[in-house]
Amino acid sequence: MFTALSINVFEQSIRDYHVHDDIHRTIENPYSRDRIEHLLYAKNWIDTVQWHLEDVVRDPAIDPVEALQLKRWIDRSNQERTDMVEYIDSYFLEKYKDIQPGANASINTESPAWAIDRLSILGLKIYHMREEAQRTDATPEHRAACQAKLDILLAQQQDLSTAIEELLEDISQGRKYMKVYKQMKMYNDPSLNPVLYGQKP
């Protein structure tokens, strides 16, 4: 199952990141570029670094200049995340390129890779909620509340995995078809963001 493979790779990426827990550490992707695992690992690594960037930038005592630098980093990370999702969708487009959709085939509300993106983020929520549920310096009430949230996240992961597998099966059988729209983000494009194209040289 593709979702089981994805979850395993995401968990590996999250574990690998937390060996050093350093937002500046360079990714060491263990998979060759010709494997889908390479894209999945790279995708989750971006998500994991950004998760921790979002933590750091919320420090009330952060230097404003540093905060701005981190915001710029987060913007770049968002663009990289979008690019990785589109690469993963390209994998699915290639995989199902010979499938002829049926006459009554329908389109899904999101592409497979954007659903996989949510699975990646869920992996991070599960990892960090489990940490909170097991904190020895926290109160029993805190741990119990976090365990309850963790149980919900695990159920959500199972439900999302089932939905993704059903979507992929529907695509493979021609009951649904894929259509990928490039995200066309505007805020990073100097020709589309009025704040950027309005600047004088």
Rank of each mutant, 00 (worst) to 15 (best):
N108R: 10
K125L: 14
M129F: 14
A105Q: 09
N104M: 05
N104F: 09
A115P: 00
T109P: 10
A133M: 00
G123Y: 01
I116V: 02
E110Y: 08
A103T: 15
M129H: 12
E131G: 04
R130Q: 15
R135D: 09
Q134P: 08
W114V: 06
T136F: 03
S120A: 05
A115T: 01
I126N: 03
Q100M: 10
L122C: 09
I99S: 00
S120P: 00
N104K: 08
D117V: 02
R130H: 15
E131F: 14
T136L: 14
L119A: 04
G123L: 05
I121W: 04
Y96F: 02
A133K: 07
A115V: 00
N108W: 10
A133C: 06
E131K: 14
L124I: 08
E132Q: 09
P101F: 10
L124H: 10
L124M: 13
I121H: 05
R130I: 10
L124Y: 15
A103H: 08
M129T: 15
G123A: 02
R135P: 05
T109F: 14
Y127T: 02
E132D: 03
T109H: 14
S106K: 15
A133P: 03
R135W: 01
D117I: 01
I116K: 06
I116E: 05
A103W: 14
A113E: 00
G102I: 13
K95Y: 02
Y96V: 03
E132S: 12
A115H: 07
L122Q: 03
E110P: 00
D117E: 02
E132L: 09
S111T: 04
A133W: 02
R135Y: 05
S106H: 06
E131H: 12
I121Y: 12
A115C: 03
G123F: 12
P112W: 05
L119H: 04
K97Y: 06
R135L: 06
L124G: 09
D98Y: 07
E131R: 10
N108G: 12
E132A: 07
A133T: 00
T109S: 12
R118P: 01
A113Q: 03
S120I: 04
I107T: 00
T109N: 11
T109G: 08
E132I: 09
K125V: 13
I121C: 01
G123R: 13
D98Q: 05
G102N: 13
H128R: 13
I99A: 01
A105H: 04
N108T: 10
L124S: 01
A103K: 08
E132W: 11
G123M: 06
A113R: 00
P112E: 07
S111Q: 00
Q134L: 13
